[in-house]
Design a protein around this nucleic acid. Structure first.
Lengths: 227, 227
DNA sequence: CTTGACTCCGTACCTTGGTACGGAGCGCAC
DNA sequence: GTGCGCTCCGTACCAAGGTACGGAGTCAAG
């Protein structure tokens, strides 16, 4: 069996030297006896494998303590095999539970991802919404957008814009949301088929340039249509 | 909007008071201004929702730092849903990888249990051996790529990559978001039609391998195109 | 025979995600 | 006017899992 210094062992296992020593102190790996003459300790490929296993197990979510237990599952000649077996079964249960939990996590993420339109404004970001948790639980405002009703003379007007970059109805909804959030916009409707948006807005508070800019923030290109 | 004391907020969100304060210190939630007269600060249901969001996100595997980012994305009116989605997808890949390894570990334990009962055959009675025995799925790399301190002057370069696995424009947006988040990337454009991504990046800070890896995190396959 | 690259060992320090503690103040109820 | 229950604030502490640092020794090359 090949022999390594601690440095090479660490490198081979993808950890650093301090970590190897740390594992030794923790009893996760055995510290090889020091050869006579003050020469460096010699590690072998078994140690490397062991360290790799430790990292794998950690990555999966086991703590070092649990990993110690996993590693100690072995049948020493003479050891009580029934005991090993019992512990292995116990561990298997733990692993199963963990699997289930992780798998639920993945499902949750899948659901989030599937429902997300994948682009556009955060207003319609279903991921954030969903994570807000608890069945929508009303409110969920918290995104600012303080629809302050400003005073002053208002000159309402309807503007039609041609929008480039909408790929689906979801995009149209996004455009609407973007427009809705411009202060001074009373109503916004976007159509994917027509590649257009119609906006009822206060000309003073929400000039056309603001509308175009708002839409641009979502990655769309807007041009005001003049009849 | 209803107002709560910190205690009621904590209770409503299912955490304890110290935790609320801890999140405040971490900047995860905002500390409301203290009303004049030394009366207690007033929290609202938005804060409760936010805390719930934090816990949900933690539950699916996000760290507080990642959650901070998610939350700041939410607050950023210019932020793109694709970015949020990309993060979710990345997380999902992480979770998936873990699931796979975990399930291999369970298989290994099964093997261990199956071989152990008689007490006779002592070979293959450690998980290490059991895992080796049924390893199969090589992989296990996942360690390398140790973002070693890359020094040197920056050399900007445009790299074109062929991307497999994009199904729609939303996917292209996702790929862009994944690439954008690699440090050293100045600009990323992905085209669904061309099955390509073009990236302007600093060769030293963001080597091609990093780009490929970033895209892979979203479950896409990338190959650098050499002219 | 010096220099650099290691090893060895101990101790100190870091990050994450919180908990706990202690003194001070406020409002209310009795 | 004295508790009780709460808030406020700072600081300390916890467990896990490392990382970093400093002084000393060893070895091989130049």
């Amino acid at each position: 069996m090949k022999r390594f210094t601690i440095g090479r062992t660490a490198k081979a296992a993808g950890v650093n030297v301090e970590t190897v020593r740390f594992y030794e102190r923790r009893g996760l790996i055995e510290q090889p006896a020091r050869p006579a003459g003050g020469r460096p300790r010699e590690y072998d490929s078994g140690t490397v494998a062991r360290i790799r296993f430790i990292r794998q197990a950690q990555d999966i979510g086991f703590s070092l303590r649990e990993i110690t237990e996993l590693l100690s599952l072995r049948a020493d000649p003479g050891a009580d095999c029934a005991d090993v077996r019992a512990r292995a079964i116990e561990k298997r249960e733990e692993v199963s539970a963990r699997l289930e939990r992780l798998s639920r996590m993945r499902d949750a993420l899948d659901l989030l991802i599937a429902r997300c339109p994948g682009g556009g404004d955060l207003r319609c970001c279903t991921i954030l919404e969903a994570m807000e948790g608890n069945a929508g639980a009303g409110d969920s405002a918290s995104f600012g957008t303080a629809t302050t009703a400003r005073k002053g003379k208002s000159e309402m007007k309807t503007t039609t814009m041609t929008i480039k970059g909408m790929h689906c109805d979801g995009c149209a909804r996004t455009v609407e949301a973007l427009l809705d959030r411009v202060p001074g916009v009373r109503k916004a409707e976007a159509s994917f088929d027509a590649h257009q948006a119609r906006v009822l807005h206060d000309q003073a508070e929400a000039p056309e340039a603001d509308l175009v800019a708002a839409v641009a923030k979502g990655g769309f290109e807007a041009a005001v249509e003049r009849p």
